[in-house]
Design a protein around this nucleic acid. Structure first.
Length: 259
DNA sequence: AGCATCCTAGGCG
DNA sequence: CGCCTATGATGCT
């Protein structure tokens, strides 16, 4: 499943491909997760010009000319596909057809991928926002004794970090994912702030270089720690894993456990 | 805070 | 060829 760096590349490519086109028809074969009726979605968006595609947290935002926004969240298994004129992708949740015959479909066998008309602005800041500073992290981490990894994953605090990148970031910062958030010293919080930016930016750069045109899937092969094909970290420690709450955490002894 | 829920498909044995 | 797992968010206990 795609995480922030993948989505960043997708949004870029979709913007290149679709911005400036007028939405002719939107269909929602699976409207279980849609926050408005299909009719109201259609009457709001059809006929509007798509101005911009960009990423907000783990969601893609399609900004239309009159200020309406279509949010697309891929959740666990959602995928995006471009099509010409007719969409035949299986498990289509929503399909957008533009005036030149180009189409975009979001599919999901699980049916969990979520389209949202005019998603509410959330207070949580984006992981790549300039507001994501060591000072911000200090404030957030001090207020809870929860495991630091859970804080990174909490979309109500920071938007955009998922399970795989949380492990990469924490290894890079030298902090054990099981550390109590309020026990992490200032110097390590600074390292963490730096690692969040660096790990996400480097991943995006890598994906863009190796897969410049992708709009779907996830690229994971280059990950150093959260990677089932690797046994040792770049610095040589054995990678360990532990399943917490149904999802796997990868870590090494190179990471300090604060408790 | 922590676990069950959604219930597919691709990868690996 | 069948089993296993992977990722997110919500809502319950």
């Amino acid at each position: 499943m795609p995480e922030l760096p993948d989505l960043q590349v997708f949004s870029r490519n979709l913007d290149k491909k679709l911005a400036g086109k007028t939405l002719e028809k939107v269909t929602v074969p699976n409207d279980k997760k849609l926050n408005v009726s299909v009719k109201s979605l259609q009457s709001t968006l059809q006929g509007q010009k798509l101005q911009k595609v960009h990423r907000v947290g783990k969601e893609l935002h399609l900004d239309f000319k009159d200020g309406d926004v279509l949010g697309l969240h891929l959740m666990l298994r959602g995928q995006l596909h471009l099509f010409e004129n007719k969409n035949d992708h299986k498990h289509t949740v929503i399909a957008l057809l533009f005036d030149d015959g180009t189409g975009l479909a979001m599919t999901d066998g699980f049916g969990q991928a979520t389209p949202t008309l005019n998603p509410e602005d959330r207070e949580a800041i984006d992981a790549l926002s300039p507001k994501m500073t060591a000072a911000f992290l200090t404030e957030q981490l001090q207020s809870t004794k929860a495991a630091v990894k859970n804080v990174l994953l909490d979309q109500n605090i920071i938007r955009g970090i998922g399970n795989a990148y949380a492990d990469e970031i924490l290894w890079d910062a030298g902090i054990s994912p099981f550390s109590a958030a309020n026990k992490i010293p200032e110097a390590s919080i600074k390292a963490l702030a730096k690692s969040i930016k660096e790990v996400l930016h480097n991943a995006e750069k890598h994906i863009l270089k190796e897969h410049p045109d992708i709009i779907s899937g996830e690229i994971r092969d280059f990950m150093d720690i959260h990677n089932p094909h690797k046994t040792h970290s770049p610095k040589g420690a054995a990678i360990q894993h532990k399943t917490v709450g149904g999802r796997k955490t990868y870590y090494t002894e190179e990471q300090e456990l604060y408790k």
